[in-house]
Design a protein around this nucleic acid. Structure first.
Lengths: 251, 251
DNA sequence: CTTGACATTACACGATATTGCACGAATGAT
DNA sequence: ATCATTCGTGCAATATCGTGTAATGTCAAG
């Protein structure tokens, strides 16, 4: 990777996330920490960003407006995204769910990854536009604005035609008895369909989802291959997952 | 290999990949690194690319992502967007093309408008998420990242099932003889399909598009109901449009 | 056909830039 | 106060750059 590209990548990320963590960024990009640190120092010298211990912040503190702050995902979601991104193998055919956590995943995919990503979320698609070697396949349908995903029969029909290697699913509840749940019945149906077609299903769950239950059941826990969760797993849920031989990754 | 060929090969590759690595390119082409470097230096001298250590990057930050381009929308595009937004009637079934101009349209739609908007562009869909009473229908397909629109057979198939009241089309060329043109054949085909299905087609053209021609023909001017253009219309084009009874709105 | 002017290319080499590593200093967390 | 990170600097290894030079190829005039 060329120096210039690296630097613009850093600035881009900085604008998107509102921060850069030197070590994390080095890991994501596969570059050495030294190089990243050097770049950060130089960019700071040019006044393009503000160097801080551990990473960097945008040069102008004005960027800290409220709308952007909302977009800054919690550290937990970022960590989940990073862990999930690391699971994607080159050449795979991946289905990405909608939601802020999966958006983090999309952003964290290695910059040089060659793969095909299918999604029913326009915001995820926009996110993936920056990845030069990722082919994006968009699932159409009626847009459910709350979650920013396509739903309805058109979406279902399009989904039925694909067989993803792995489905990264976002949910609002992961419960030992009720399984995976979400708030909208249409969305639940779509998730269910994808889950049944995908060879593997990986669930991304930030802390508040663990042990929680939402109105609509997606699938029981037995349909899940792995779960990437934030923080400590509640004992009951953990036991249940172990029982079902579901892979557990905590970040 | 001739110098000219080499140079155009370099520029072509640069446009496709967004970067050139001197050593790698030399290896691929079987040419010596010196030659490549010389070419790069010369091209940089002509301002056709940007020389960096290790290779070269595109001269214009035109490759800068669409989101950036949207934010620097010209006043003209904003005005076109506003005029077009005013044409939308409540309850209509509208197809919105991708592109920066149509993004302006989406942003300018009255906040209380009740209508259905179909689009094959995820960025337009994201834009429309803020409109509480607009139902959004997304057309899926393979994502053509340059323009951020779905293309391919899947997109075409989905489009064939709808009959929009009005199609707001963006193009890169509006010419008295060649009609409407754009840069990508797939995209042109999609535009053509939508145009044929829509009851009305309204073309949005910022100033630089008037009288211009791009490689791929979409449809002749006779297929257009109205055109919303920025600034003075070239005389020939104006005459031709009048002839064909195409409505003309200048902003 | 030969010759010489000119352009292009490949190679050599010193100069410069980049990178990764080591180590002591600085920083932040416990 | 202690400890683990993170930082910054110096340094050596490597990669890349630009220039000079010789070799090769092209072309037109003689």
């Amino acid at each position: 990777m060329l120096t210039r590209q690296r630097k613009s990548l850093i600035l881009e990320r900085l604008k998107a996330d509102g921060q850069i963590v030197a070590k994390g960024f080095a890991l994501e990009t596969g570059l050495s920490e030294d190089t990243i640190r050097r770049d950060l120092r130089e960019l700071a010298g040019e006044g393009l960003l503000q160097r801080v211990h551990g990473g960097a912040l945008p040069a102008s503190p004005a960027v800290a407006d409220l709308s952007k702050r909302q977009h800054i995902a919690t550290d937990g979601k970022a960590a989940i995204g990073r862990a999930a991104a690391a699971m994607v193998r080159p050449g795979q055919f991946v289905f990405l769910d909608g939601g802020t956590t999966t958006a983090q995943l999309a952003r964290r995919l290695p910059h040089d990854l060659k793969a095909t990503v299918v999604t029913h979320s326009p915001s995820i698609a926009v996110e993936l536009a920056h990845h030069p070697h990722v082919t994006v396949e968009l699932i159409g349908g009626r847009l459910f604005k709350h979650s920013m995903v396509s739903v309805g029969v058109a979406a279902l029909e399009a989904i039925r035609r694909i067989r993803p290697d792995v489905y990264f699913m976002g949910v609002t509840g992961v419960h030992e008895d009720y399984g995976l749940t979400t708030g909208d019945p249409e969305e639940a149906a779509i998730k269910r369909a994808i889950c049944e077609l995908a060879a593997e299903t990986v669930v991304l769950a930030s802390h508040e989802k663990l042990g929680a239950v939402s109105p609509c059941i997606v699938v029981p826990l037995s349909h899940v291959s792995s779960i990437i969760a934030e923080g400590p797993m509640p004992a009951k849920l953990d036991a249940r997952l172990q029982d079902l031989k579901v892979g557990i990754v905590t970040v």
